[in-house]
Design a protein around this nucleic acid. Structure first.
Length: 287
DNA sequence: CCGACAACCTGTGAGC
DNA sequence: TGCTCACAGGTTGTCG
């Protein structure tokens, strides 16, 4: 489901809905996610204001302030911190306007109620997502410690990319999906970016020269920006915070289009398997 | 260190 | 209709 564009779209609407507001209530109906939702998380969260909603890689980060002492008897202290959410393969967040709280669906695992009546639900059928609290004085959590550059920021460029791919024999498609190389690019957008760059997904990562990598960097950026503008891709589970679908799946050049004509040259789109994931490409446009 | 693969979990669609 | 199998936007641990 969610790759960088879907998480970014979620972060933006969540930010506008809850930034500056106080968590009045929290409920957890199933703590068994990829990592267990900590017991007593509600006591940690209630009474805190969300000072910002950010994204790092595919993680959503809810920054929370210090809390006035009285209600806190959790042993977590009153120190501020960050709630880290990940949507895994099938997760989504839904924001309900004031006073609207529909019945809970199957796989709605977490609920947040804010002081202005806004209600947020976390839904994740496969439970590959996570929800953990990191106090402000903790060292960088291992989840975030070893991540590569953000693809939409300046630190992602051809020169550094060539350096990290130096000597790597794995395919460029596998390398693009490696979060040590660059974050946020998953199975859909790796195929899409390689199409836009005109690069065959099976090309050994270390064999690409500066010019082709520069083209790839721009293709990754353009692909992700277009997908964000389209509200992300909705295939099975992903939906925006208002419950509506993203549209980028309709704009894909290659993903999910095996056998269909290439939008650029009409040759049939090819499909193959790389490290257990399906890859799509055009054998004429990508060399 | 690197690369490939299984595991985590549920739902869905295809084929028999 | 009902069963089984393959596969699905991610990440992590393990093995060779």
């Amino acid at each position: 489901m969610p790759e960088l564009p879907e998480v970014e779209v979620t972060v933006r609407s969540l930010r506008s809905a809850i930034k500056g507001h106080c968590i009045e209530a929290f409920r957890c109906f199933n703590h068994r996610l990829r990592q267990p939702v900590p017991a007593g998380l509600g006591k940690t969260l209630v009474g805190r204001y969300v000072t910002d909603v950010r994204r790092r890689a595919k993680y959503l980060l809810l920054d929370c302030n210090e809390r006035n002492s009285a209600r806190d008897n959790t042993g977590n202290g009153k120190l501020g911190g960050t709630l880290i959410l990940h949507l895994g393969m099938s997760g989504s967040l839904r924001v309900f306007p004031l006073g609207v709280i529909p019945p809970r669906r199957q796989h709605d695992h977490l609920e947040f109620l804010f002081d202005h009546g806004i209600f947020v639900r976390y839904h994740d059928p496969r439970r590959f997502g996570l929800c953990v609290w990191v106090p402000a004085d903790a060292e960088t959590p291992s989840l975030l410690a070893k991540l590569g550059p953000e693809p939409l920021e300046n630190a992602f460029h051809a020169k550094s990319l060539r350096q990290v791919l130096q000597g790597r024999t794995t395919s460029i498609k596998n390398a693009l999906m490696d979060a040590h190389v660059v974050v946020g690019v998953g199975n859909i957008y790796a195929s899409e970016a390689l199409f836009r760059a005109g690069i065959r997904p099976t090309t050994p990562a270390g064999s690409l020269g500066f010019v082709r990598l520069a083209r790839l960097v721009e293709a990754v950026r353009a692909t992700l920006e277009d997908a964000i503008a389209a509200g992300g891709s909705s295939l099975r589970d992903y939906a925006k915070t208002d419950g509506s679908d993203g549209w980028f799946q309709n704009d894909c050049f290659v993903y999910g289009r095996a056998g269909e004509p290439c939008r650029r040259c009409s040759a049939p789109i090819q499909q193959l398997r790389q490290s257990g994931r399906t890859t799509f490409y055009c054998k004429r446009c990508q060399r």
